[in-house]
């Protein structure tokens, strides 16, 4: 049981895809202009990650190793397209904001990375937990970055404005350059925290 929990928790901090592994960075910068967008993108990716991890783990003995990459691509692309279509139907506003970054889940390195490095070698249950952990690790990172950029850039949080309409905000953080700088400083912050934790233990 402890082993399974480890598969889940590693994605949240030690192997966090955004801050520690630095993979799947495009949506981290592109769709985090608000906390809600970050959360939506994170959950969409988590869904694709869990589904494809489970399926690839189930099929690991069926797929010949020479064609495993095309097979993974088809599986991941199918789930990304399903998310794309379902989101378009039921959450049209969010779908419009996330735009091409929903179909682009298919080329998110996290997906291929977990399929190749984990799901193709492990049991269904631990692959699902690995996917869930990695997905939620990605989600909290995106939501945090989105929240910081939204608070500084638009003076609101989860679309609730807490400053007057006329108040000046740091528009810089809504713009592309602000995305890069926010992520850079957050990574530095994570490094400081991790170094402290290492020293303490």
């Amino acid at each position: 049981m402890g082993g399974l929990m480890k598969e889940f928790f590693k994605g949240l901090w030690n192997d966090n895809p955004t801050f520690r592994l630095q993979i799947g960075l495009c949506p981290v910068l592109a769709v985090t202009s608000s906390a809600l967008n970050g959360l939506g993108m994170g959950l969409a990716t988590t869904f694709v990650l869990i589904c494809s991890s489970v399926l690839i783990s189930l099929l690991k003995n069926v797929i010949p190793s020479k064609v495993r990459i095309p097979c993974y691509i088809i599986v991941i692309a199918t789930f990304s397209t399903i998310v794309d279509l379902v989101m378009h139907a039921f959450l049209p506003d969010l779908h419009r904001v996330l735009g091409i970054f929903i179909p682009l889940i298919v080329v998110n390195c996290i997906l291929m990375g977990r399929a190749e490095a984990f799901a193709s070698k492990n049991s269904v249950v631990s692959s699902a937990l690995d996917g869930l952990g990695m997905g939620l690790g990605f989600t909290w990172a995106l939501t945090l970055i989105g929240a910081i950029r939204e608070i500084l850039g638009s003076g609101s949080i989860f679309n609730h404005k807490f400053v007057a309409d006329t108040a000046a905000t740091f528009g810089f953080f809504s713009l592309p350059p602000g995305a890069f700088v926010t992520v850079g400083i957050l990574i530095a912050g994570m490094n400081i925290i991790s170094a402290r934790l290492r020293k303490a233990s």
């Binding site: 602000g178 890069f180 700088v181 850079g184 400083i185 990574i187 530095a188």
Partner: peptide, 14 residues
């Protein structure tokens, strides 16, 4: 120290 590597790269990219 904490900004070394990828951190400062992000700030430069910004």
């Amino acid at each position: 120290e904490p900004l070394k590597g990828i951190g400062i790269a992000f700030v430069i990219a910004g």
